[in-house]
């Protein structure tokens, strides 16, 4: 925990950190303004956080924001740092980090595909990674209704008797 504190003090002295959180013993989450992300990630990479473990997105639909989460990992001290920022949900756009971590290519494609966040500077981020011939809104957004989509596209089996209502499971 001490090393974590010193890392936090170090970062706080250099950057404008909006909030901090400790999800786990070896994990630290920092919230940043979106314009600081690239500087912080470059700095973290230079002090040993050489692995980008994950880039993902959270849909905070009530606040109207997407939260991007960059998880970087240091193999020397085993600490994960979650670098988080919030984007406007209406027109989500962000700059790519492919130049910093080339492996981010696939994560950015993934986030683009499932949340519709555009990454400027990554020319193939629009390419589909998992979904093929997708024809609806990005499926991991909270306002997407998978049940409705599934019912429209994939016919369900029809049963002669309703087993669920017989055992009293359905309201």
């Amino acid at each position: 925990m001490n090393s974590m504190n010193s890392i936090y003090e170090n970062l706080k002295s250099k950057f404008n950190i909006l909030g901090v959180d400790y999800p786990d013993d070896m994990q630290m989450a920092i919230d940043l303004d979106e314009k600081d992300i690239h500087t912080v990630i470059v700095y973290l990479k230079s002090i040993g956080y050489t692995q980008l473990s994950m880039l993902t997105c959270v849909d905070w639909i009530k606040e109207g924001v997407f939260q991007l989460v960059y998880i970087v990992f240091n193999w020397d001290n085993g600490i994960h740092i979650l670098v988080r920022t919030k984007l406007d949900r209406e027109n989500p756009k962000f700059r790519t980090i492919v130049e910093i971590y080339p492996g981010a290519q696939f994560y950015e494609r993934d986030v683009h595909e499932f949340f519709g966040v555009e990454f400027e500077g990554n020319e193939i981020s629009y390419k589909n990674l998992f979904l093929e011939l997708w024809d609806d809104m990005p499926p991991m957004r909270k306002d997407f209704d998978p049940q409705k989509y599934s019912d429209e596209k994939y016919a369900a089996r029809e049963y002669k008797s309703k087993f669920i209502s017989e055992v009293g499971g359905e309201k």
Binding site: D136, P139, P146, S150, Y154, A155, A156, R157
Partner: peptide, 8 residues
């Protein structure tokens, strides 16, 4: 209720 799984 998955958006990618066949039901039948």
């Amino acid at each position: 209720d998955s958006y990618a799984t066949m039901k039948q």
